[in-house]
Nucleic acid binder design. Sequence first.
DNA 1: GATATTGATACTCACCAGGCATCACAGGAC
DNA 2: GTCCTGTGATGCCTGGTGAGTATCAATATC
Lengths: 302, 302
Amino acid sequence: MPGEYQYPFELRHLAYFREVARQLHFRKAAETLAVAQPALSRSVAQLEAALGVDLLNRTRRKVELTPVGRAFLERIEPLLRGLAAVPADIQALAGGQAGQVRVAFTGLAMATVLPGILREFNRRYPGIRVELNESPTSAQLNSLKTGEIACGFFHPDAATTPGLATRLLLQENNGVLLPADHPQARAKRLRLRDLAGTAFVMFPRAHNPGFYDRVLAAFRAAGVAPRIADEVWPRANAIGLVRAGLGATFMTPSEAKQLPGEVVFRPLDGPTPESRLVLGWRKEASPDPALGAFLVVAGSAG
Amino acid sequence: MPGEYQYPFELRHLAYFREVARQLHFRKAAETLAVAQPALSRSVAQLEAALGVDLLNRTRRKVELTPVGRAFLERIEPLLRGLAAVPADIQALAGGQAGQVRVAFTGLAMATVLPGILREFNRRYPGIRVELNESPTSAQLNSLKTGEIACGFFHPDAATTPGLATRLLLQENNGVLLPADHPQARAKRLRLRDLAGTAFVMFPRAHNPGFYDRVLAAFRAAGVAPRIADEVWPRANAIGLVRAGLGATFMTPSEAKQLPGEVVFRPLDGPTPESRLVLGWRKEASPDPALGAFLVVAGSAG
DNA sequence: GATATTGATACTCACCAGGCATCACAGGAC
DNA sequence: GTCCTGTGATGCCTGGTGAGTATCAATATC
């Protein structure tokens, strides 16, 4: 039956036998093990009795392994070594000194807060590996629920998912990113209605319906019919399309700071959609220590 | 310090925890383990205390693994499975139902008793693998001393090596194996002096000086000067050389029975060297059980 | 043959794993 | 709300056993 206690020995027996097998000398092995020699003799004898097998050949003057004893030793040694390493590894894991965090992010996060957080995190927790995956908000919410990711940088919708904790990292009104040769590229400040007729590069609505709808609402408020040219993902490609002159796109000032030339960023006066970036994770009784470490760093950097 | 007892837990703790982690239910796990629930609770609590880490998250209504607990479980499961398999494997080994025997042999053995022994051994001990190596007598004696082989079929010299047990398997006077077109091939019986001038194929003297010298002694007794054409090893090649007409060679009747045509075997009257084949192994306090099984079969077949 | 070395044995003790009884708490039923 | 049931933890006691001390028995060395 699986699960039933099935070991005719304890680790003590195995470790004692191993030491005797190494030294082939009960007294010396007993000293190494910090135990009295009779206790060692009995423990090994018990092990042999439990297995129903002779492991050692004792004359009064010398001890040697039987062939079966040698085979037994070879079998248990790697297992004992494996078990010996477990406590330290687990403690490192629990102390947040080892392990991994799976993190999802959107393009905005990568263009703003994420690089700094990662740099700081790697400095403070070199033992923890961070697994990064760009992923739209909607997919992140799913992955959080299934446990596929430990936390995610995403754009919060109106409805907060229960069981999820979030921390606001960024909240900015969007401006527009224009090709350098756009007619309005000279203007220092713009309003949405100045951009009637300009094609916009968006992302698929399902990825973040909240923001998508705020964009449409801003157009409506400005009395302009939106012209959506392409929907593209991931985010970096949208910037590429703007750079290629295919259209404009919405962008926060923080993100725009990172961009090299050939495109111009202009803030928008009047109605303009707002972007919010949050870091979200599951509320849990015993959070993953590696995640805990990540949250600390992300919090102090935010 | 290597060798010191370094485990903050016993197998019991690990097996108990594993069962609780599987069922996520202390009472059910306790039943499976045939132990009372309080004992199980305390054992797991001890394990957590020893590691200084929370492995389980207990509310009064449900139990779940912490992330660290999951990592711990994943670490110990393969090790526990490995240890669980050890006793049965070792007992099979000790019972001679598994394992391997390294066996060396000379050409004479392979041409006479060895195939039958192997057939019978494989039938009776299908779990034991036999590792075979053709090897001259002198090399076998060395390999026996070093433990490189468990037993060997070889040709005993006058001096028996101490610590070695042997069993005589074959003792026959040699005849000669002649090419089919040899002048004396028609004669039913021969004496050594009839073969004066015939070239003989031998083996390097160092491989079995005892027999080599008995050959020379037989020539001397017959008043014939030996003519050694080639020295070749392994044995099968000598027969090939005879078949090719390059010379004659000494051979026992048992071995000659196995040979197909193009060569003729003739017994020798008068002085003729004697071949002895023995099976030899180290005398040991605790012999390898796989070897023991092999010796039993080889004994009943001999 | 005397001596030293070494593993096994006898005896005792202290510890602790395990059992039983019970508690404390959380959910569900109504 | 109240009761009931199911759950893991706690308190207490006992039997088993691992470990220590003293000693024995056997063998190799001189």
